[in-house]
Write a protein that binds this DNA or RNA. Structure first.
Lengths: 372, 372
DNA sequence: TTGTATGCGTTATCAC
DNA sequence: GTGATAACGCATACAA
């Protein structure tokens, strides 16, 4: 922190007035208390001296740090940067800044980070890292600090959230697949401890029932994490069950990429033999081979709304505003991993093989444990 | 900011001692001044009361905010998240947190953000957004606030930086291409206002001379920004010159992706007719069609070192430590966009066509103006 | 409309 | 070793 900074007192001295007068003249909220000409002169002198208010001192006095804590599982998971931009752009409009930290999906680390954030006096918390059962979040809320979860929600109605329409989005994917004539459809679900994984699973079940899909109850697999490795393993496991299917709905693009790899390992053609869908339309989802059919969620907008909601709550008296539950609409993005149901099913591709995901790039991919 | 927080005075009252004693007992640096048993008792009571030091008050008193300002062009540009993780992880070890903001490559916005950071009393600045001529950075440095640029450097030796070996990396790409038998090699260079663009251009020239490549001076194009759109346009322009080449070295992966699109538009096969290399090995560079041959830079490590360097400078007396200039080594990553030089060159693919980059996805891509 | 006085929660410099 | 006191820079209740 720079030392010789010019402070209120210096401006006051230069203007020949008292520091408090300068303070009032410079604050838009109190400027009307000062004679226009004086206020103008003070403003001019302040900028001449390059006065920059010390926001730490101001924070101590006002009990407002003008910072918002933001927790993400892992900023290198490409789904999060657009959310963060939405948050940052919106907070900046009101002079707030985010303090961002990565939880690596570790509840202990999350709790520690929340403590650190609170020690730093953040005025609110935006959490992209929430798990459905999240004691730390409930605790924060009960301590009266404004909290919003984004992209995911927790199992407690009292906490505000901004999420996407997960069940509806998954239904979109199933509808798309059904329109292509598929009747036996598998689902590789995400982690059920996350609302995204759970709701997309619900969405599949509901849509499968509606369309009276065949054997769908026996064609559901669960991935432990939203990453490529789990996608590969989950897909292989589904294949090994020996129940033929013509389409695979995955709960997430990274899962889908892993599935594509697994299918390729088994020599199964996409989409000729099996159609695949992802979820999120993350950056570069269109660069897979073939380009991935997926459901586009709103990321920047989710961040933007989450920030707006926090900001509203800061203005209001504590606990005055009820929790906001916002669900953004999603959109089907058909690309090349889905196609018409094959005329005849090559049943030989289903059943145990006993192979393992190939090495090589898998080592890199396995390193990423992040979910979303 | 929560209100009823327990403070030093509360702990002191509960322990029956003075607040200053509590302060000393809780600070590892002064704990030795206190009787062991007393210190222990205070520590216990503090944790029982869930005391969390108010870091804002502490900051005001010590003139250290324990925050570092971090500026990136755009966090959604996937090259930056790993850098940020390196920074965050490293800062966290010493109790510092980053305050991150996006400049959108706008020097005005950068200057504004630096002002905001400084008003917030950041103890140092890490800049991934630096342009070669960057008055704001020089200003900050002269004001005595520790600055490190990462990934890029400015034209002023007094500022510390952590970059990758750009010229060496570009030479690696040229060597690789020459080994495959290519003799006429084009270069799509990046923005010369950025050190990355400039140094990679240098690297190409040097390597081209060394290998005595053919007509290389006439086969250099300059992209205005490091994005796909500039890659498409730059590649098309190179093709239109009518000078046949068998390989294209681009200054960046996104440029390479644009070039791949342009080549595809013209019906030119990669790598059979033209080989292409990228630079950075950004996430998903292996997912292009075909998978992109590129040069892998160090991102996480760059962020880590930048943070370390800032931290060193905070401990030291202001201006005591000389600037650090660190250059990380890079690595060639051969994949499928490069192959042996074709036996015969199909000259008809070179020369003006008068087409324009196709619409569709280009609209999305054009929206991203970020460079790196 | 402007000036005075006080306190936000810590830490550092004195005394004791 | 521990306690008392002042100061960090600003904002606000109160006085003028």
């Amino acid at each position: 922190m720079a030392k010789g900074r010019v402070k209120l007192k210096d401006v006051a001295a230069a203007a020949g007035v008292h520091a408090s007068t300068v303070s009032r003249a410079l604050d838009p909220k109190t400027r009307h208390l000062i004679t226009d000409s004086l206020a103008e002169r003070i403003t001019r002198i302040a900028s001449e001296l390059q006065y920059r208010p010390n926001s730490i001192a101001s924070s101590l006095r006002t009990q407002q740090s003008m910072t918002i804590g933001v927790l993400v599982p892992d900023i290198t998971n490409m789904i999060f940067p657009p959310i963060l931009r939405g948050i940052e752009d919106t907070l900046a409009q009101q002079g707030y800044v985010p303090i961002i930290a990565n939880t690596d999906s570790d509840p202990v680390k999350e709790r520690t980070l929340m403590d650190i954030m609170r020690a730093r006096g953040v005025d609110g918390l935006i959490l992209a890292s929430a798990q459905r059962q999240d004691a730390a979040i409930v605790q924060a809320m009960e301590d009266g600090i404004p909290v919003v979860t984004v992209n995911r929600m927790i199992d407690d109605e009292r906490v505000s959230y901004v999420i996407n329409n997960e069940t509806g989005g998954l239904a979109l994917a199933v509808d798309h697949i059904v329109e292509l004539g598929h009747r036996t459809v598998a689902h590789l679900a995400g982690p059920q401890r996350l609302s995204t994984g759970l709701f997309r699973y619900y969405g599949f079940c509901r849509a499968a029932k509606k369309h009276r899909l065949r054997k769908w109850r026996d064609l559901i697999g669960f991935a432990g994490a939203f990453n490529e490795e789990s996608g590969r393993e989950g897909c292989l496991e589904l294949l090994d069950r020996g129940i033929p299917f013509t389409a695979l709905i995955t709960a997430n693009d990274r899962l889908a990429i892993g599935a594509l790899q697994a299918l390729s390992i088994r020599g199964i053609k996409v989409p000729e033999e099996v159609s695949v869908t992802g979820y999120n339309d993350m950056p570069f989802a269109d660069m897979t081979t073939p380009p991935l059919t997926t459901v586009r969620i709103q990321t920047y907008e989710a961040g933007r709304r989450a920030a707006e909601i926090i900001l509203e709550r800061l203005g209001a008296e504590r606990g005055t505003l009820p929790a906001v539950h916002e669900v953004l609409e999603v959109e089907m993005v058909p690309r090349q991993t889905t196609g018409p149901v094959p005329a005849t099913i090559n049943e030989t591709i289903f059943g145990p093989r006993g192979d393992t995901p190939s090495a090589g790039r898998s080592a890199d991919i396995a390193a990423s444990e992040t979910d979303r």
